[in-house]
Design a protein around this nucleic acid. Structure first.
Length: 594
DNA sequence: GCCGTTTTCGGCCCGACTGTTTTCAGTCG
């Protein structure tokens, strides 16, 4: 039986940690961590790939890792990990999680003082034995004790690390940028949100801000005066670091006005994008940093006022922040100028979206009426909106019985008849029952304009059963789209076990759309999976899943995921006008015999 | 351990900060 991708990724990560403790060169350790990330994000079963000897097809997995994964699957363990585990106790890995202690210091502490756990470390620090180690001193001892105290006081703090979902992170970042810019010290300054918030990631670990100004110290000092800031650590002419009341770190970096482009590029990341960018630069005799681009030929650093200039100096087309994840964007940007190569995608935008195909009303668990939702959708400039309340077995006291759905269809038809400026469609978000069946009769479903099928129950079934369940729903001729296909909740709930490769194959074969649910807690499909879906020939639909008029604008977060997935307008079904989309629906395809 | 618009072997980013140091190593992002 094939191991889940998560288990393989965990094993590779552990082995990377162990090799690091063992003093392996950093590039080898990095190779394990990169591979672990690739495995975790893969849509297909990496275990199955490895069994067929094809895991080497994945970027960053070579012959050695292919073999290690094979062995892991066959025997349940990797011999190298077994050996190293005997050498380095698990408590030692815990120590490396403390701030200020990495593999090298953990290794020295283990070798010289026999320290093998956080408790042993505390004991040694209290006895002032840590300062006896060469290269470590009293200050280090102090900071170790304070780090240990912090970890003990709030064990979750170090484990779970507070992350904000993107909407809260962006709101906080923009408030801070505004506060800095509008303050007395902000006169003449430019302040921008960078980091993972700018890349529109699912969640954000800390807020990165960049600023350019002629009075850096005053600006850095002013960070601590902002109402969102709880405390400030270091302050200098190149920036300030602090902590927001929201519980996450804030990192402000300040440069000269002529460095704006380099600074923004550097602090937008991702770290891996930047590392790959610099490697590419070195091959051209150039060195990229937040200060500019150093040219080996004349030893001079050219500054960049715009990000575009940074990429241009390296012979690359401008890369949108959402793409900067080292997922092939540099290669695409390099080939942008070659006519035969597709280059970078022209990413889908909000203005491309023509309609909303998944939202709720008071008929189930929504807060607004059909009329209110339709008017709000029209206000957003949409040409159509499908009302898709939950179905007959949803539970939570908001089931819509078959008779109630018939009345709902009449209400929609009546409204559609008299409402100008937007087409209102009758739909439903139908439950996919554990056996893959739907909870309305086909006759009733056939009366609807739009059917989204979603899993809301029995998340715990095994991968094989869940995949079969989903395939049966996909093969149903009246199902237009699959809603929130993995059931994940960001930072809260793991996706259920499902073989997405098989699901995408079935969706492509049957012409069933797969949703990117735009609820910022879900963003399901994820960026990596959505990209794989489209590569497999699937068409995506982006839905707000709004439960009230205000959250129709959640569409924004789904578009962000689509952009991170490299999706263009034509990859997304609801960029089409209704008359085109209607023809695409598989029930009409079937009728035409296509 | 991976990988190839100089390479199948020899490379594999860059700077700030901290603490321990008389010139640097480790950690972090």
């Amino acid at each position: 039986m094939d191991l889940p991708n998560g288990a393989i990724a965990d094993a590779l990560e552990e082995l990377g940690d162990l090799y690091e403790l063992d003093g392996a060169i950093v590039h080898r350790v990095l190779a394990y961590r990169t591979a672990a990330k690739t495995v975790r994000e893969a849509s297909m079963s990496v275990g199955a790939l490895a069994r067929e000897g094809r895991a080497v097809q994945l970027a960053g997995i070579g012959k050695t890792l292919q073999e290690k994964i094979e062995t892991l699957q066959a025997t349940g363990t990797i011999p190298a990990a077994e050996k190293l585990r005997a050498k380095f106790p698990p408590g030692l890995v815990q120590i490396t999680r403390l701030p200020g202690i990495g593999a090298k210091r953990a290794r020295v502490l283990h070798a010289e003082l026999g320290i093998d756990s956080p408790d042993a470390l505390r004991e040694a620090a209290l006895a002032q034995r840590v300062r006896e180690v060469k290269g470590l001193g009293a200050k280090f001892e102090e900071s170790v004790l304070s780090a240990l105290d912090k970890a003990a006081a709030d064990p979750q703090e170090s484990e779970r690390r507070t992350r904000l979902l993107l909407p809260q992170a962006l709101e906080l970042g923009e408030a801070l940028a505004r506060g800095l810019g509008e303050g007395k010290a902000g006169a003449g300054a430019t302040v921008k949100v960078a980091g993972s918030a700018r890349r529109m990631a699912d969640s954000v670990k800390d807020i990165d801000l960049i600023a350019v100004t002629k009075k850096p110290v005053a600006l850095a000092k002013s960070l601590g005066g902002l109402p969102e800031i709880e405390s400030v650590g270091s302050v200098s002419a190149v920036g300030a670091r602090g902590r927001a009341h929201a519980g996450i770190g804030v990192d402000l970096r300040i440069g000269k006005p002529k460095e704006l482009g380099s600074l923004l590029q550097h602090f937008t990341g991702s770290g891996r994008h930047n590392a790959a960018l610099r490697e590419l630069a070195v091959r051209r005799g150039l060195h990229v940093s937040e200060h500019g681009v150093l040219d080996d030929r004349n030893g001079r650093t050219g500054t960049c006022e715009t990000e575009k200039a940074v990429y241009q100096r390296l012979g690359l087309a401008y890369i949108e922040p959402e793409l900067r994840e080292d997922r092939g964007e540099l290669e695409a940007a390099r080939l942008e100028s070659e006519p035969a190569h597709p280059g970078l995608p022209k990413l889908v935008e909000q203005k491309d979206i023509k309609g909303e195909l998944h939202c709720h009303t008071v008929a189930s668990d929504g807060k607004n009426t059909i009329g209110e939702m339709a008017a709000a959708a029209r206000e957003l400039g949409y040409e159509y909106v499908a009302i898709t309340d939950h179905s007959a077995t949803h539970g939570f006291g908001n089931d819509v019985s078959p008779d109630e759905l018939r009345r709902q269809i009449e209400r929609v038809r009546e409204l559609d008849g008299r409402l100008e400026g937007i087409r209102v469609l009758a739909g439903s978000e139908v439950n996919v029952l554990p056996d893959g069946g739907l909870d309305y009769e086909d006759e009733l479903l056939a009366e609807l304009d739009w059917v989204v099928a979603s899993v809301h129950t029995a998340f715990g079934m095994g991968e094989e059963a869940m995949t079969a369940r989903m395939i049966r729903a996909i093969e149903h001729p009246l199902v237009d789209a699959i809603g929130h296909p993995t059931g994940r909740m960001i930072e809260k709930r793991e996706p259920y076990a499902i073989d997405l490769g098989t699901v995408f194959e079935a969706a492509a074969r049957t012409g069933t759309l797969i949703e990117i649910n735009a609820n910022p807690d879900r963003r399901d499909l994820s960026d990596a999976h959505a990209r794989n879906a489209v590569r497999a020939g699937v068409t995506i639909v982006i839905d707000s899943d709004a439960h009230k008029t205000e959250t129709l604008t959640n569409m924004r977060w789904g578009i962000a995921t689509a952009r991170r997935a490299w999706l263009c307008k034509q990859d997304v079904a609801n960029t089409r006008p209704w008359h085109e989309l209607e023809r695409m629906r598989k029930r009409n395809r079937a009728r035409r015999g296509g």
